[in-house]
Design a protein around this nucleic acid. Sequence first.
DNA 1: CATCAGGGCCCTG
DNA 2: CAGGGCCCTGAT
Length: 321
Amino acid sequence: MNLTKNYTKILYPKEPYNFDSTIYHPPHYPSKLEIYETGKYWFALKLRRKIYGIKMEDRGTIENPRIKLTIFSKFVLSKEILKKIIEEIKFRFEFDRDLSEFSKKFSKDAILSNLIIKYRGMHGSCSNELYGLLMIGILLQNTVVKRTVQMTNLMLEHYGTKVNFDNKEIYAFWNPEDLIKISEEELKNLKVGYRAKLFLRLSNTFVKEKIDELELRKLPPKKIKKEILKLYGVGPETARILLHEAFHFYGIFEHVSPWQQKILSKLIFNKKLVPTKKIINYVNRKYGKWAVLAVKYIWEDIFWQREQGKKIAWLEKEIRL
DNA sequence: CATCAGGGCCCTG
DNA sequence: CAGGGCCCTGAT
């Protein structure tokens, strides 16, 4: 799919806004879904079954954020569509979210004070729609990162859409209504194992029950969590991923998986293994409605350090690639 | 060579 | 609520 028409607009996120640490996530596994360079980001935006090429460029500073957005499409876009795309970008990258309270409130916190300076203006962000992120959640389950990467790429090459714009080549996720036409056997040939069944069952649910991400966003977080936990194959960890990344909720911190437990025990308590209940209670008591963001700052930092070449022996042991 | 757990979840007892 | 099974892979 070649996207040749393009539209540009300058956007002004609420300050403080840190482009690079918001957009790019060192803890995430690499995929063909996005391309990042310092100050630049490309991805394929899916919105109501349509695909648009998105390029974002940092043209400002943390205190005076300014982002150049270029939207690529196959056909001429109406003003209304452009407006909807921009609204969606603002939501997914938290352009309008005010973090000044967070920055102020924890400026003397033993763990966060340095990180709030180092990553000042880092927001949550997610380039995927709910369905795509759900697919990623399934691809992460019960395996090592290397295999997740392999399964993701194979699935995208077979059923995703290859999108070309701005001299970049990126993949977009398949639509649920297209995937359900594929047989479980064929999916299994891509070595996704028992996930084949999950992909099909979830896609069926999305088609049949017409799960509407925009409608879900209007519900209170507890209710959303309850709804997404009903999805077959979605348990506490996948629900956490969706709630934090697709729905941008900072207030619900109720689950820590075993490998996260090891890393957070070390980073927050400097201990080998603290019970997850203790971690959860501590974080909630200390950071309240900012709990998820607080953990995000801690989490992203250690992976940024790793990305920049710092060797952290105990961490390498926990990140099984 | 065989065995096993991995960036979970469902189902059963 | 504990524990077995799930697909496949690479580490041991």
